[in-house]
Design a binder for these strands. Structure first.
Lengths: 111, 111
DNA sequence: AACATTAATCGTACATTTGCGATATACTCT
DNA sequence: AGAGTATATCGCAAATGTACGATTAATGTT
């Protein structure tokens, strides 16, 4: 049996990175963010037109991105407009850049 | 009802990024990679000593990282030595850098 | 007031992930 | 040969993720 050592908890960095990674762990959600990077904003219906999934499924993926903090929605009935949450996007960018040890120049740039 | 449009499939970039992101979607796996970046190599037992999880669970997380291509193992009985798979690490790094639009310098650097 | 529009949520089915203890494997050492 | 060591794999239970159709909610339009 192994000696009883002080076991290590996961760091905040590890937990936050994993949380963001989880949000990116489905192609649909990556595609939504790719789309939002190009278009700056979109409505749920735009994605339903483009992608081969049911409206309810797409809505669910949007919800996950929202809960992970990567996007935000502005209700404008009957539509909801989504865009990237820039603060958390920058945070995720920084976490991944640090993780991959990438030299990064534009992490502090504004939109 | 919405008009019947040509629905878009996910790009290879989106699928590959999602695959890597899935591998990074658990703090334990992020922690293993963090450890490997510092230590360059490790044995399964090192991780069992450090992290508060059962040996079988840690072995399973290692397996997932291996199957995602991010690490590779060299059997050296009774131990197995793991290290980062540099080719796929670079690939992942590039995918995430592109995704986040980060300027990166050292993507072409060697080990 | 009835209808149309857009999107979220519900309920359900199925698949995958996570964690653990127990067991199997493949050696080395005595 | 038998014991010890390190790790992978199995079998299971619980939790979570994925996808869909149906329903609900909130509004504007006729």
């Amino acid at each position: 049996m192994r000696a009883t050592k002080e076991k290590v908890q996961f760091t905040q960095q590890e937990q936050e990175l994993a949380r963001f990674a989880k949000a990116l762990s489905h192609p649909m959600r990556v595609a939504i963010l790719n789309y939002l990077e190009k278009q700056l904003q979109c409505y749920t219906g735009d994605l339903v037109d483009i992608f081969p999934m049911a409206q309810s499924t797409i809505s669910q993926h949007i919800k996950e991105l929202k809960e992970a903090g990567l996007i935000q929605g502005e209700i404008n009935l009957p539509k909801t407009r989504y865009c990237v949450n820039q603060d958390n996007w920058k945070k995720a960018k920084r976490l991944f850049a640090d993780f991959f040890n990438v030299d990064f120049k534009n992490l502090t740039c504004e939109i």
